[in-house]
């Protein structure tokens, strides 16, 4: 089968190290930001940084960026279902325990 030969260019060591440096940098930022009082934005910024980090890991370390498009669709479906479920759960919680 043609897929077995891994025809695409093998990524170099350099790219991986750059991505790793980015991940460490983002970790430092998120820890540093936790020291400030960002009021309601604490969770949002922490999650936003975590999402960027996981995108870096999936796209580069896990090769999703260069891999077959089918994996992007799969990941999208999986995340979409998780989001739908959590949003619907919160339709119960936010109205059952309204914020004061």
């Amino acid at each position: 089968m043609s897929e077995n030969t891994h025809t695409q260019e093998h990524p170099g060591y350099g790219l991986y190290i750059v991505v790793w440096a980015g991940l460490v940098g983002l970790t430092t930022i998120t820890v540093a930001l936790a020291g400030f009082n960002l009021v309601g934005l604490t969770v949002v910024t922490a999650l936003a940084i975590a999402i960027v980090k996981s995108l870096l890991v999936t796209n580069y370390f896990m090769h999703v960026k260069t891999d077959s498009a089918v994996f992007k669709v799969f990941i999208f479906v999986c995340i979409a279902i998780f989001l739908v479920v959590i949003i619907l759960t919160f339709f119960d919680l936010t109205y059952r325990f309204p914020l004061k």
Partner: peptide, 20 residues
């Protein structure tokens, strides 16, 4: 995936979510 709440209509979940 969107409809599981109909098993819980009488359990005390919020009215909004029941309608949805």
């Amino acid at each position: 995936y969107l409809v599981w709440g109909h098993h819980m209509f009488s359990t005390g979940i919020s009215d909004t979510s029941r309608a949805i």
